[in-house]
Structures are given as C-alpha cells and as structure tokens.
C-alpha cells in the first residue's frame, strides 16, 4: 500500500529564441513600459521548430535524469496542454515513445492554464489507487501557434515552453509529498477566455478574467493549504500560474504568506506559458536551490474554462 505520492524531481525546457518587448514594437503598436506596467512581462521564449511534444520530451528527459529512475520504471505519462495542434497520437504517447517508455498509461489533459495542478492531482490519484507507481507529469505549450501576432492585446502576453515532474509513490508510514488537490471551475464564465474555431487564436476579456482571478481565487488557494494541513504562513514558496504580476500580487495580498515566502514571478522572463507556467517556475526555483528540499510549496493554476486547481507539494 502507498500513503500517497511525492514529486521526486523536476525539469524544464524553453526554446532558445528570446523575444523582448522591444522586438514586439517592430510589428505592433505597443511599448515596453506599457507591457511591463500592465502585465509584468519583459521577454518571452518563442519556439522555432520545436513542437509541443518536443518541448515536453526535453523537459521530461531532464526530470527523469534528475530522478534517478529509468524509462522502464515509468508507467504513467500525463501531459497538460491546450495548444497542441497535433491531436493523434496524443502528446503523452509521443513523449513516451521518444523517451523509450514502452507501455505506459498515457493521456493528455486540457484545462488550459490550470493544467499542471490538474495533472499532478490526477497522477497522485492514480498512484494512490495503485494504478501507477511512477509517473511523469508535464505541462507543455506552444502558445505561439495559437497567438494572433497582429493583435496587440494578446500577442504581448504569451510564450512557449515545458516543465515536467517525476512523481513516485510514498510507502505507508511516510509523509506524502503531494497534498490533496483543490480543483474546480466556473463554467458560466467560460466565454471570457477562448481558443476556438478555425483557425484558433487566444481571445480574452481581460478585465473580467482579472477581476475573477484577483477576487475569487484566494479562498480556493487557502483551502488547498487547509486540506494539506499547512498554514499559508508556513509556505516556503507560492507558485501561481504566471499570467500577470498584478494578478499574482492581488492573490498574494489575500493569502497571508510569511515575509520570507518566495513568490514565483517567472513570467518576467517567460511570458504566460499556460499549463507550462507552474512547472517551469517551480523547476527553476529548484534548480536555483531557492527552496529547501522538503519545504512546502503551494502550486495554484487558473485560466480558461474557467478552471482552477492547486495543491501543496513538498519541494523535491
């Protein structure tokens, strides 16, 4: 029997091409000051030849190498994405094939920007139920494929990338490293954030999304902490979806974090990468050793659907 699961290791990948705000002013009527003050983004990475599956694979490869496990140990691959143009085979089986994982359960999951926390929750449930022993959970997006580069309202917001976690079962008697997921949605508000039709481009009602995110989400984030038995003031770090620094600040204001808690602001250098934003930011915190191993970190995703999900995890 297992007591639960934990994140063993993380990895991430971003394309090498940096697109600064200044670069965007060459084709759009916008400017660096406007983007920084409204959104908080300075630059983003944009894929040239990489597909969603390529970026997912590169991130998963790093996480797997850091975990000490081998491809043969993995029996579940979950990929959170809302931007993969290739539908079948799904991204998860493409990743498995490239990594030499021969017979895993493999599926994609689309809850847009909350995808990684949904995927961690799903993998945790599979491990608890005995349906999997070791999982790779990935958030990967190529939002540049679904961005209208002539629309200055949206083109300044998004980026490409992937982050991955290796998750394993925790034996009975030991403390699980992944807390209960708090997940949900507000389907009646679904039409305020869309990637619809053909060909699909991201569109959103920015004010309504901003109001929802800054006024309604903090109680859910606090509830995710309560379910894990951790007070917000005890968190070592908060890794929210990286959409807008003003949304992050608005949620933080209502959370009650300690003064020393780290609040991830990876969007400054990565833009909004939807389902990839939380694992990208978390993987970088770990790589820079900013959070000690075992320390509690609150992950919280939110976005299209409108959907949201979060959980407290112990830093690997």
């Amino acid at each position: 029997m297992v007591a639960g699961s934990r994140i063993v290791a993380m990895g991430h990948y971003q394309p090498s091409r940096v697109v600064t705000n200044e670069d965007l002013t060459k084709t759009l009527d916008t400017n660096d000051e406007w983007i920084r003050s409204r959104v908080g983004i300075a630059e983003r990475r944009i894929a040239d030849t990489e597909t969603v599956a390529d970026m997912a694979t590169f991130a998963a490869e790093k996480a797997l190498a850091a975990s000490g496990l081998s491809a043969a140990d993995i029996d579940l691959v979950v990929v959170a994405t809302c931007s993969s143009i290739d539908r079948c085979p799904n991204v998860a089986t493409r990743v498995a094939n490239k990594l030499g994982i021969t017979a895993p359960a493999a599926y994609d999951l689309n809850t847009a920007c909350s995808g990684f926390s949904y995927a961690v929750g799903s993998a945790d449930h599979a491990i608890r139920a005995g349906a999997a022993r070791h999982a790779i959970v990935i958030g990967a997006e190529k939002l540049s494929d679904v961005t209208d580069w002539s629309d200055r309202k949206t083109a300044v917001l998004f980026g490409d990338g992937a982050g991955a976690a290796v998750m394993s079962g925790v034996p009975d008697g030991e403390e699980p490293g992944v807390g209960p997921v708090l997940w949900g949605s507000a389907p009646d508000k679904g039409d305020v954030l869309r990637i619809e039709g053909w060909r699909p481009y991201i569109e959103q009602e920015g004010q309504i999304v901003f109001r929802w995110a800054t006024t309604e989400l903090a109680p859910f984030a606090i509830e995710a902490c309560r379910r894990a038995g951790v007070k917000p003031s005890e968190l070592a770090a908060f890794v929210p979806h990286q959409a807008n620094t003003r949304i992050i600040d608005g949620i933080v204001k209502r959370l009650g974090l300690s003064e020393t808690a780290i609040v991830a602001k990876d969007l400054v250098e990565s833009g909004n990468t939807s389902a990839a934003s939380v694992p990208l930011a978390l993987s970088k915190l770990i790589e820079r050793r900013e959070v000690p191993s075992g320390a509690p970190v609150l992950l919280f995703g939110f976005g299209g659907g409108l959907t949201y999900a979060g959980q407290v995890v112990r830093c690997p």
């Binding site: 409204r38 920015g206 004010q207 800054t214 807008n244």
Partner: peptide
C-alpha cells in the same frame, strides 16, 4: 488603466455596499 479600473470597482463595491457587475464596468 483597465486593470486598475477593475480594482477601483472592487474597492467601491466594498466601500459603498453596491454590486457593480462585469458588464457595467465599461
């Protein structure tokens, strides 16, 4: 700016005990 306007609306709701729905803000 448009996002600060949302913050003003949210604060005004609290201060004046009034509901200002999303479609009214514009």
């Amino acid at each position: 700016d448009s996002l600060s306007m949302v913050e003003v609306v949210v604060a005004a709701e609290e201060k004046f005990g009034v509901k200002i729905p999303d479609n009214e803000v514009q």
